[in-house]
Design a protein around this nucleic acid. Structure first.
Lengths: 349, 349
DNA sequence: ATTAGCACTCTAAGGTAGGGAGTGCTAAAT
DNA sequence: ATTTAGCACTCCCTACCTTAGAGTGCTAAT
């Protein structure tokens, strides 16, 4: 499709632009990348590349800038794959996440911080949602006369708690019986499956009229209902340093976008089921406010099920190769951590 | 100290500047506030006020701008105290916090959102730290072969959990016994007191050699050690709209400052023990990066002990009267919520 | 096919002039 | 003695212009 010369030039332009967001001129390319052609030749090539949609000019008589299509080609064909191992990243991940193995929310929060400080873009992570999480066990604890603390453990290490007001007053024994029942029935299922079964069981138990059990089911349902995916984003400070965000309006837009976690979940969800690292460049994005940004994500897994997502959001002018491997390594790392946490449990069964 | 005329003028300047951050001129004051003097007279008064340090000029031949000292005088003497009841605020607080009574972290997070959306400044909240929180009860739950989930309930509604790796394998019965012991010993004490006692007991128990108990104590200590105050800040989007933050550098500074939660805690801590609403204006602040900002805080209480802090951070040109009552109302509201949550418990004892 | 040369285009930066808002001072008015 | 009108002056802000520089596209020569 493209001859070798064109590829060299395209690579040079993108490489240069990634390091420094100034339109790239023909003279600069010949000098800096010591190509064996004169600026005039490069100009011709660039004109061709522009016609093909890989480059564009901010205005006549400015240098060239890569288009989204250009970046896409770069990511798929030209990128430097063998980025050095992320020793520093692994180090900080292990160091910072050491004590957090079992508290996945804090773990993900720290992960986004690590991602953003290493990439200098936004770090993002989505916790396992109800569909993927497997219930490990439920505990019911008397909290006060008319309140019960319900605590949910999942394999992914998410602990969800809620305190429920209750009309009946349960003894500790009652609660233990209920918990035993719930655990027997539901542990090992995903939250989504449990929700489904709850609906059925509750319909059935209406007739059985076993107060304790039906109470238990309703308790369980209450907690489940507040179970959703959580989004973590950090690194605003990092991207404020980038020249493309020196404009207040853009910052406002980004800030609004990332404060609206629902929008982010929607955005990210479409990538949840893909294998490996996903790259969405600029206008490939379906969300209007993100058309100037690129997103790199990967899923981390619990066992062999995709659990949640980690990634990086940055300008389209992104250091793709390093960002991609950063995300890749991080996702693997999280998968590993979750595995350690889950192993004994799976062995046990 | 100031005659009535001067006060009127000072009030007018500050009032005008709060609504619109342009230096206030003499002509504008006479027009807008229909004072019974000519611009020339106002000019003389303003010159006096400047000499006294209440006003300043950005440059010769610009209008006047209030100084920190001016704001201070305004807050203490001139402010419109009887701001209308914050019906809207109370409404959204009740609506948004209804289901969160017992999960204080989510509660505080939502509180900052409500504060920032009502004030259009930054909303801030600090959760009860170890010193103030009273332990309600401890639960120990087997998590896997060699791990135990420790769950801490406090009166303030904070639930802290941690999963601990353990060398011994405890049966459920063991854990229940340990939990009973711990509850008997420690519930009703503040976290700080417990930490203190733990140290003593552990020293003593070395000789007693009751493995179970000393294990229990060490478990308890482990969880306590991760018990610190949490800071919540939100509303960056709000203050991006303010004209004083149209400069990227200022935004960077603020963003850095609020991302550094330790600094914020340090800053806020000095206000923790004061009664009622605290107002810190601009350079009165001890933290360098905050010298252009004002902070309004109040403590919410659990029972009669101050538990944590809520507040607003904004530009010195802040709508103090509404911000102050906003913070006041919110703090009272939180206190009330915590009271409801705690009442039964205290009654029980 | 490539390159040197050249005219042309567009931006970014710096400099200048004019308008406008506001002041301080002085002298007149109350 | 206080207040006010009048006026000269100061300073900022904006718009406008100019210039330098970087880069292009085209043409003609290699």
């Amino acid at each position: 499709m493209l001859d070798e010369r064109s590829i060299k030039v395209l690579w040079a332009v993108i490489n240069s632009y990634i390091n420094n967001p100034d339109p790239v001129g023909s003279r600069y390319v010949t000098r800096k990348y010591s190509l064996e052609f004169s600026p005039a030749t490069i100009r011709n090539i660039m004109a061709d590349l522009e016609e093909l949609g890989f480059l564009s000019q901010p205005h006549t008589s400015a240098g060239r800038v890569p288009t989204d299509k250009g970046y896409r080609f770069y990511v798929e064909n030209l990128m430097d794959e063998n980025v050095c191992c992320h020793k520093g990243l692994i180090d900080s991940l292990t160091r910072r996440l050491e004590d957090l193995r079992e508290d996945i929310y804090t773990l993900l929060d720290e992960t986004t911080r690590t991602l953003s400080s290493h990439s200098h873009y936004l770090g993002i992570a989505v916790s396992p949602g109800p569909d993927g999480s497997t219930l490990r066990c439920i505990e019911l604890i008397p909290y006060s006369d008319d309140r019960i603390a319900v605590i949910l453990f999942t394999n992914e290490g998410i602990i969800k708690h809620k305190i429920l007001k209750n009309n009946f007053s349960f003894s500790r024994n009652d609660l233990n019986r209920i918990a035993r029942y719930l655990n027997k029935e539901f542990s090992g299922y995903t939250i989504r499956e449990i929700r489904q079964r709850l609906l059925e069981e509750m319909a059935r138990d209406k007739e059985l009229c076993d107060t304790l059990i039906s109470q238990a089911l309703s308790l369980c349902g209450d907690v489940m209902s507040c179970y959703g995916a959580n989004v973590f984003i950090s690194g605003l400070t990092e991207i404020l340093e980038l020249p493309e965000f020196s404009d207040i309006e853009k910052i406002k837009e980004i800030s609004r976008t990332i404060e609206d976690k629902h929008a982010v979940i929607k955005l990210i969800d479409s990538l949840a089921n893909a294998e490996g690292v996903q790259v969405v460049i600029g206008a490939e994005n379906t969300v209007e406010e993100m058309k100037a940004l690129s997103i790199i994500t990967s899923t981390y897994k619990e066992g062999d099920k995709p659990a949640g997502i980690v990634g990086i959001i940055g300008p389209t002018r992104m250091d793709y190769s390093s960002a991609i491997s950063l995300v890749d390594v991080t996702a693997r790392f999280l998968t590993e951590i979750l595995d350690e946490g889950g192993q004994e449990w799976r062995r046990e069964r």
